[in-house]
Amino acid sequence: MKALIIEDDPTVAEHIRSGLESAGHECFHQSDGKNGLNRALDEHFDLVILDIMLPEMDGFTVLEEIRAVHPALPVLLLSAKSQVDDKVRGLRSGANDYLTKPFAIEELLARAEGLAGRPGAASKETELSVGDLTLDLLRRKVTRGETEIDLQAKEFQLLECLLRNRGKVVTRSMLLERVWNYHFDPQTNLIDVHISRLRQKVDKTFNIPLIETVRGTGYRISEGLS
């Protein structure tokens, strides 16, 4: 993955760069809005990580300019402010995801990889499968081998979310945002409880565990199973 970081704080930029590079991604850095925009328009990137507070030109403007030329280029917005209206404004003006500083580098990595590898037509699939597990999106049915598994609505959505990001880590707050549609930080191990229920139904009676825990970060369904 080739990523462009537009961020004026050198510490944060270095933090992101080292995180992405240690995961084997290629990284470029620009420290102001104007140069960042030029670079984003001139070269091909798989992902732009964009800070909102920037010198020369703010992040929202940069985002609009990028969108005018590359409607499909994934953009991850960063903000020091945790204001919801910033988040809403960012997502409305075309950002693909939003992250509030400070963040755990795993969170950023998970989101960045999710964005860069997001297949454009994924939403049109009617069936998701991994190993012997099949998710029928139209009939909302889950089967593993020959057995049909009875899942509740939220459990189904959790599984769907994990499957759509197959092979990538999905963090707890990503799950909360995508399954429950709320931006907030839970104080307890809420998501873990939901996952453990899902596991009970999906994994317990079968030999190969499907959902793996990535310590300190989130969950993943491995791609190697298929």
Binding site: V12, H15, S18, G19, A80, K101, P102, F103, A104, I105
Partner: peptide, 16 residues
Amino acid sequence: AHDLRTPLTRLRGKLE
């Protein structure tokens, strides 16, 4: 709180 957050994030990064 704001100013302490940045060094704390750095500290966490180093711990990682």
